[in-house]
Every structure is written in structure tokens, then in C-alpha cells.
Design a protein around this nucleic acid. Structure first.
Lengths: 229, 229
DNA sequence: CGAAACATAGGCAAATCTGTGGCAATGTTT
DNA sequence: AAACATTGCCACAGATTTGCCTATGTTTCG
């Protein structure tokens, strides 16, 4: 799920610059003219990270930072035109996670934001990879979602399991028996065309995608990318 | 317990400067002439944070950073005489938590190190933190209060537990069995649709909110924000 | 070439899953 | 004691899934 970032800066140019860069980086962004507006929105629905200018009309960035910090552990980045050692140290000591001096590179901001999220992930120790990809399709085992070029494909449980198994063994052909054993947990010997049926439906749903499921005559199936001539 | 910090820098003056400042700040410090020595010591006894110069004899700082990152989640700060946007972005993207340009203020380094440890503490606290948020809803485990847009929502104990569990696992789909096990503490296999019942009531109560509880066919449930197209 | 084996597509119906409203058992408050 | 809240269960309806069946291609092999 995409992370939500709130920005407060009273210079409209900077605000929109940051906004567009962060959106391009895949975040959901909302920007605000001043800290009080941000704070109100945050109370309404918390963000995953906050970018604050120090010099704003109304409550200044440091105070906003303080209020947020008292309330929760949301990561905060302060951006400011003021550049002195003392300013930077104050900003960080007051509770912000980083302090950038204007003019700063939007790309650096993005990198630092990514870094903060990475730090949080590392601390959480969540390194479990739950996705499998092939061609332009990605399966997410954690959410049971199937994405093709950003679009959502609706797969039934059996279809999902079968495709996931194929994705996990994309480099080789898979036999029907193997599918029945691993997807259906049947014991070998079951004489059923069930796998063919699911495959039939999968092919229909994946028609628009990059991925095709070739049949290996007399054996089973194997994944292949369509654009491979 | 005092935290242990390792420093690698081949300029002896800088090394000792940093060393003394960090010790004054209450950390246990060991410094090394180059990255390889630091790495060897780290394998022997890991540190809580590492400060790396980029330009060192032997393996350079970025590579050391990489090796450490592959191995564990220790926080890393890179210090370097090279100052360009690209250098900073590369450093952070490669896995460091911060990038400081020489000459830097030792006090700022200390402040940033404190900041990183604070971030880790905040994240750790999060696990046992009393509040969980999703969309515009915040659950407070301590008071069993549920707030949506500042308004109060009245949840029964079971509803609260279930929603709290969903909030804590908002990034993935949760199966019925898992819910029964964790919310009801039933052992698996209980054939009950109690979860569906609570979900039914929850959905009704959350109808006005940002949050919707989607069902994952044949599996369980997953949180989703409504304003997401 | 022709037959047999295998694979695919469409349709169908049984089985499964999910949401809803109602209801009763239990415990709690007034 | 009566009103209330909570919560699990049931039955029903609607939707979805899925295995099978049949008809129709496609490949292999004698």
C-alpha cells in the first residue's frame, strides 16, 4: 500500500515541486499552506511521514514538529532556508529525523525519505518477500492481489495458487500430476482434468498480459513471455 | 546500557575528534584506520551504529556499507569530503542512514546519531504502542477508544480486538483462521463464522469512515482506504 | 492419410462462500 | 426485576467458484 506524505510549505513553487517529485516516487502526497492546516489534517487522518518548512505563517515548523512528536512517532523532515550549525542541530534535537537546507535537490529529499522508510522496515525486521513476478504480472501472496501493469486482475483462490506455483517454477515445465499434488494436495493418480480447467480460465484472464501459459504436449505446462519472438 | 559506535576514517585527526565527541555524548566508541578493520571487528562483536568515511585505504566506505547492509540492519552514517548531489544520493540509496559532508560539525554528527537512535526507539515503541491508525481512524488500546475524524465510535470489546488486529496487519490479507486464533484464541479448525458476524457489525459502524474492510474471496479480509480509486 | 491421443472452449450445475436479518443465550446495568 | 448490550448461531438469498461433460480443434504416429 502506498505511503502517505504530508507537506507544509508556504512557498507555492517549492510545495508543488516537492509534491510532484514525491508523487513520481510513488507516494500519496497532500500539501498544505501552513503547519496548522497540516496538523488539522493529520489529526483527521495520520500520514506516514511529514515534511515541514520552518518559516511559515502561523505556527512555525519547529513547534509543529514538537506537537507531532508529542503525539506520535511519525517521521519528520524539516526543510529550511536557514542554514547554520545551530539551526540544524536544533531541528534534529527537537525531534525531526532529518534537516535539509534550501535550496535542496528534490531527488535528495526523495532518497532521504526512502532511507527513512527503509530504516523503519529494517527495524521492523520485515524482510519477508511475498511477491512473485513474471513478465508484467506480479502476484502478492500477502494481499492475495494480482497486478498487471498497475491494473488489478481478479483471480479466484485456485487460480491464484496455481499461477503462483507456475511463477515459482517459471524456468521449467510443470506436470499435471505435480500441479494436482501441490495446488490441490491430491495424492498422485487422481485422474482429473481440474488443472486444465483452471488453466483455461487463467489464460482467458491473462489474455491481455505479457504472460502466456504454453502447454507441453503429453506432460503439462510452462510459462512464456509473449513478446519473445 | 550504553550504545557502541564504530568509526572508520583514515585521517587520524578527524577520527580522534569524532571519537572524543561521541564519548562525551555517552557512547562507547571504537575507531579504526580503515573499513576492513572495522568490518573484522564488527563480525567479532557488532556495533549499534557505524560511521564510515568514503575515501579510505583498502575497501572504500560504500562497499563496506554494502557488506554491512547485506548482513544486518545496523545504522550507518557516511562522512565524506566529496560533496555533490549525486554523492549524497548514492550514499543514502546504497543503504546509509545519513550522509555528512566534511568538514562537518561534530555536534551535528552527535545530534544526527542521537536522532537515529531516537527513530529506532520510536519504531520499537510502536510495537507496544497503544495506538494504531489507518485512514482516518485511530484506535487507542490503552483506553479502548476509537476515534474517527475526532468523533468517537463505540466499539464492543470483540469488535475492538478484531479491528486492532486488522490495523496491526493492514498491509496484508488476514485469513479467518488467523482471526479466530488471534482474536478468539480458538485453535484452528473451529467451524464458526463468528468472525463474519463481528465483521458485519464493524462494517456497519465504519460505514461513515475512510476505512473499508474488503473480503478476499475464499480466504479472509483486508483493510482498504475508500478514497483509493 | 487416418486414427488415436491429447488439448481447448463453452456451457452447466453442484458446491462453496459471503452478507443479511433475526434470534436466543449470556452477562451487565439500571 | 426489567431493560440493555454483547455475541454467537442459524437460515436464507445471491454471488462466485469449480469440476465435469461435450463438442471441437490439434498433434502424434503408424
Amino acid at each position: 500500500m502506498s505511503k502517505r506524505i504530508y507537506i507544509a510549505d508556504d512557498e507555492v513553487n517549492i510545495r508543488e515541486l516537492i509534491h510532484s517529485f514525491l508523487e513520481k516516487a510513488g507516494y500519496e502526497v497532500r500539501s498544505f499552506q501552513d503547519g496548522d492546516a497540516l496538523l488539522a489534517a493529520f489529526y483527521h487522518a495520520p500520514a506516514d511521514l511529514v515534511v515541514l518548512d520552518i518559516m511559515m505563517s502561523g505556527t512555525d515548523g519547529l513547534q509543529i514538529c514538537n506537537k507531532l512528536r508529542n503525539r506520535c512517532s511519525v517521521p519528520i523532515i524539516i526543510v529550511s532556508a536557514r542554514d547554520s550549525e545551530l539551526d540544524r542541530i536544533t531541528g534534529i534535537t527537537m525531534g525531526s529525523d532529518d534537516y535539509l537546507v534550501k535550496p535542496f535537490s528534490p531527488l535528495e529529499l526523495v532518497a532521504r525519505i526512502n532511507g527513512i522508510f527503509r530504516r523503519i522496515d529494517l527495524d521492523r525486521g520485515q524482510v519477508t518477500q511475498t511477491t512473485a513476478s513474471y513478465g508484467n504480472i506480479t502476484l502478492n501472496a500477502a494481499t492475495h492481489e494480482t497486478i498487471c501493469d498497475g491494473r488489478h486482475i481478479n483471480l479466484t483462490p485456485t487460480e491464484f495458487l496455481l499461477l503462483y506455483y507456475l511463477f515459482s517454477n517459471s524456468e521449467r515445465a510443470v506436470s499435471r500430476e505435480e500441479l494436482l499434488k501441490n495446488v490441490w494436495q491430491f495424492e498422485a493418480g487422481a485422474d482429473t482434468r481440474a488443472a486444465d480447467d483452471v488453466l483455461k480460465r487463467l489464460r482467458k484472464k491473462l489474455a491481455e498480459s505479457d504472460v502466456s501459459i504454453e502447454s507441453v504436449w503429453g506432460y503439462g505446462f510452462k510459462l512464456k513471455r509473449k513478446d519473445f519472438a
